[in-house]
Nucleic acid binder design. Structure first.
Ligand SMILES: [Mn+2]
Ligand SMILES: [Mn+2]
Ligand SMILES: [Zn+2]
Ligand SMILES: [Zn+2]
Lengths: 178, 178
DNA sequence: CTCTAATTTTAGAATGATTATAAGATATCA
DNA sequence: TGATATCTTATAATCATTCTAAAATTAGAG
């Protein structure tokens, strides 16, 4: 039961030749289940709750490793901070230029049209990125309600963020012995 | 200071309620005529040739002002530095993930498909951004050459292909002790 | 043209996200 | 269980960008 939660994540890490650590499990798990497209700082703060003492350097290292292995993706917006997305499926983003919220946008109708050709003037397209910049619902109505809205959005997440480190350790121990 | 060639630029600046300065004219003129999608640093270096003594702060200030008035556009790529484009017409970009070159891409066929709807779940789309990440012509050749070198190096290896298991064991032992 | 107020430029300092470093801790595998 | 490669951590370093306040310049009125 305890080990079941992280079975998939550990397997994924191993299949990519990565060592399994509690830090990596918690960060990857967090990114998979949040819809917030958090920054490194946000990842650090939220994972810190489950694993006090985790270093910000580890967060950056892990995000880089996961990104390089295609397990998560980076998102760059006009704000100077990189955001991270645990959802690597093909989808677009609506980005609010005011509050910098990033909303997932799935639209089958133009998925097939996104890569016009695979080779253009010698340029080989590997990945197509569609971003819709604009103003989100709450920002348009009232700018003052920003912080409150953000907190609410986080609360609405289907999966609780906080994880018990003991569960991870127990699982790791069982895994090691077995 | 303001000559005939820059009347258009000066007029544009004035029409946006901006004061006309040699710094603004030169920066805007530079951005309009280059296709390089330069960074602030590149703008600074190139404009410095025409106007020695210009400050980097002025470059940043001016780029911000021009951008806020829609006279130029910012481009964010996965590299930590903002790039600037004096062409504000609707077009997409091919971005080389290796050398960070940005190439203009005009394709009428999907222009109409880029904004699916103007309002989605309360989100008001203001601008759509399509970016094709990949590898440019010269970089692909370079990478191919590197791969070839690697293959060649492996081929040129003096160690015989077939190994004696005893030799390997001996080598490993020495390696371990040393 | 001259004067004045508002705006802009400037050098340098400050900020803040990210990366580099090197020592200590941990995971992996036989 | 022990050897070794890998990972984590605290801290320092980097570097693009923003801030600051004084000096210079612009625009407009007289
Ligand atoms: Mn997403
Ligand atoms: Mn362009
Ligand atoms: Zn918003
Ligand atoms: Zn390239």
């Amino acid at each position: 039961m305890v080990q079941g939660i992280y079975e998939d994540i550990a397997g994924t890490l191993r299949s990519h030749g990565l060592q399994v650590t509690s830090q990596r499990i918690l960060i990857y798990d967090y990114l998979i289940h949040t819809r917030e497209h958090p920054s490194a700082q946000q990842v650090f703060e939220d994972v810190f709750e489950s694993l006090p003492g985790i270093s910000k350097a580890t967060v950056y290292n892990t995000l880089e490793v996961l990104s390089n292995h295609g397990l998560i993706q980076k998102i760059n917006i006009n704000s100077g901070v990189t955001r991270y997305d645990g959802d690597t499926s093909v989808h677009s983003h609506l980005i609010c230029t005011h509050c910098h919220r990033i909303i997932d946008y799935f639209d089958d109708s133009f998925l097939g049209l996104r890569v016009p050709e695979n080779l253009w003037n010698g340029f080989e397209v590997k990945r197509t990125c569609v971003i819709f910049y604009g103003v989100c619902d709450s920002c348009r109505e009232e700018l003052a309600a920003q912080a409150k809205e953000k907190r609410k959005a986080r609360k609405d997440c289907v999966v609780p963020f906080k994880r018990d480190l003991k569960q991870v350790d127990a699982w790791l121990t069982v895994k090691t012995k077995g």
